[in-house]
Every structure is written in structure tokens, then in C-alpha cells.
């Protein structure tokens, strides 16, 4: 237990930096999403795909930095989340495209 605490303290500066960086990125992506919708420079056919891409990147950032999926001991959560997404995508593709 003590060991874990020490690790947490020693990782703090790097962790804080990472959190701030991800936060900035997320703000940037949100702003970009707004820009894509408002601006007329982006062709209208691109809007939805771009928004989806931004959303996926944000979800990944959210899960890994703020939901702590990058830390040790979360292998099972990652496996189950990834497999759940995988099953959902396969099912959706199967129903919609096939």
C-alpha cells in the first residue's frame, strides 16, 4: 500500500502535465467541432465524418487519461470495453450493410 502511495506521489508532476495536456486537446477538439459546423469552408459532405472522428478521439482521451485506463491493473476493463465495442461494431455493420 505504502509503495503504491510513493509511486503516486513520484508520478504526480508527469500525471498532472498529461491531464492538462489532454484537457487542452479536448477543448481544442470541441472548438474544432464547432468550427466545422459553423464555417462554410468545410464541404458539407465532410461535416459528419469529421465530427465522428473528433468524437472518437475525445472518447479515447477521456477513457485513458480521466478514467485511468492507462494505469496498471486496468487490463480487464480495457479488454472488456474493446471487446464490447468490437461486438457492437460487428453487429451494426452486419445489420446495416450486409
Amino acid at each position: 500500500m505504502a509503495k503504491e502511495n510513493n509511486q503516486a506521489i513520484s508520478q504526480k508532476p508527469a500525471g498532472a502535465m498529461k491531464h492538462i495536456l489532454s484537457f487542452v486537446f479536448m477543448i481544442a477538439f470541441t472548438a474544432a467541432a464547432f468550427f466545422v459546423v459553423i464555417s462554410d469552408k468545410v464541404p458539407s459532405g465532410w461535416v459528419v465524418p469529421l465530427l465522428l472522428i473528433f468524437a472518437v478521439i475525445q472518447v479515447i482521451l477521456q477513457l485513458f487519461t480521466f478514467m485511468h485506463l492507462d494505469q496498471k491493473g486496468s487490463a480487464f476493463y480495457t479488454i472488456f470495453i474493446v471487446f464490447g465495442i468490437f461486438v457492437a461494431v460487428i453487429s451494426a455493420v452486419g445489420i446495416l450493410l450486409m
Binding site: F86, V87, I90, S91, G94, M98
Partner: peptide, 15 residues
């Protein structure tokens, strides 16, 4: 097991 379900539906006409 999650990517074979259509084999129950071969004759539905999915192509």
C-alpha cells in the same frame, strides 16, 4: 461466436 450469426439466415437473401 460473435461473428457467425448470419449462418442462421443464409436463406433470408442478404446477398
Amino acid at each position: 461466436g460473435f461473428m457467425v450469426w448470419v449462418h442462421h439466415m443464409f436463406t433470408v437473401g442478404l446477398g
